[in-house]
Design a binder for these strands. Structure first.
Lengths: 248, 248
DNA sequence: TACTGGTATGAATCGGATA
DNA sequence: GTATCCGATTCATACCAGT
């Protein structure tokens, strides 16, 4: 399997992709969430919003956490519109969000032309408690189809995920568990192409390669583009190693 | 503990409730979901939408399943507005929905004045698989506060639930597991009053009584009002029995 | 290997001080 | 007042070291 990693702004690069060139879009955009007032959400960095002040780790910040509610919706809509154009018939879009952005995400998905087909909770067992109320232990995966689902495939995917955020060897604040991503990429037909306009540390790509799908990624931050490049290359090397065996 | 069960239309009865008389609103309104087109949703009864055509059980139909998307939103908004009026400061509203109605539900909750504070997935492990895609195994519990959360309470509630729908002894199509409801009613202070404008078979009430909360219910269908009445009365009797012990 | 005990942390949240 | 910023808080879970 192969991958392509574009360095640059998601929307700009998306516009340069040819029509009907990908078979699934799986991505985790910056949520632009957190905080009560608009200024809290737009005026602080991802680290300031999402990382406990006394955390020992020193993971790099990531860009794009400065949009207010309205511009978040139109921005996401335009992104998903371009992704729709670049997708084949029966392609599926899979978009992460938190509870606050889930309604906006399903709006944007539909405005971009996709047929909203469901919302899948991802349960994170290790999450902060909240005194006096219900804690927030889930993220949401909104998915939709271009046209109709391909019902000829003998594919049955779960309706929820329970998995902890990576802790050991974590390289990104919002890194997703590869085992979850490996399930998600199966929505793309084998040998097809998975697109992730917010590659980050590249978990979607790693999962795609492991499951025998091609990968096209876009990442703005040069730091994370480097990280993703390394992880993806390592994945290919590991493949060769696995195929050849340790004796080769 | 005591309960009051009103028979009649939810909105009409709600308007007759005194201001600031309840401490939590926990309810499962008719979802008005199901079909893709408006005609699919409004033209069929609840049984036709939610029950596999050859199902063996013979549960009664329930009313209120004939609103399109827009009128559902305004109807729910008006309901939650009245519920808000009838609630005390720091009261919490807890509203079930499916993935399709979750955005509308959080809209209505906020339009009614509540501060939306989160969305909790309820995972139903035994759900039908879906060929070619992700199955739908979750419902969503949208919750919000009148004013601010009471953070003086030593209360830490879960951020998700995993429980199968009652199978044995089920009396309502959309009956909720009492163990889930028993967790939810804890958002109401002990000895306080829980309101459920769509009582159905009365699971919210049963849970409230078990957890030492008063209950005020409203149910339109006389069939289900009878069912709820019986379950609630049985719960009180069982209480007496438990207190006195089998030898008394 | 299986278990135990110690420790660090989470796509937060909120009250209250400061500007 | 209003907007912004600072930092205390909370516990189930995951990881690690040691037996």
């Amino acid at each position: 399997m192969t991958y392509t990693l574009h360095r640059g702004d998601a929307l700009t690069v998306l516009k340069s992709l040819p029509d009907e060139s990908v078979n699934a879009v799986i991505t985790d955009p910056p949520y632009n969430s957190g905080g009560r007032a608009s200024a809290d959400r737009t005026g602080r960095t991802a680290r300031a919003k999402y990382v406990t002040s006394n955390s020992a780790h020193d993971l790099a910040d990531f860009p794009g956490e400065n949009r207010d509610q309205r511009s978040y919706r139109s921005w996401l809509t335009e992104l998903l519109t371009e992704a729709y154009r670049a997708s084949t018939e029966h392609a599926v879009a899979v978009v992460f969000s938190d509870w606050r952005q889930e309604p906006t995400t399903s709006d944007a998905l539909q405005m971009a032309g996709w047929t909203w087909s469901g919302t899948i909770p991802w349960i994170k067992p290790a999450s902060r408690p909240r005194k006096g109320g219900f804690k927030q232990s889930a993220e949401f995966i909104t998915w939709g189809v271009k046209g109709s689902l391909d019902r000829t495939r003998d594919l049955y995917l779960p309706g929820h995920f329970i998995a902890s955020q990576p802790r050991k060897g974590r390289v990104h604040i919002t890194q997703k568990p590869v085992e979850v991503m490996q399930q998600l990429v199966q929505i793309c037909p084998e040998g097809g192409t998975v697109l992730d306009p917010f590659t980050g540390s590249g978990s979607t790509g790693v999962a795609a390669l492991r499951e025998g799908r091609r990968f096209v990624g876009i990442e703005l931050s040069s730091h994370y583009a480097d990280v993703a490049e390394q992880r993806l290359r390592a994945e290919l090397t590991k493949d060769d190693f696995d195929l050849a065996g340790p004796e080769a």
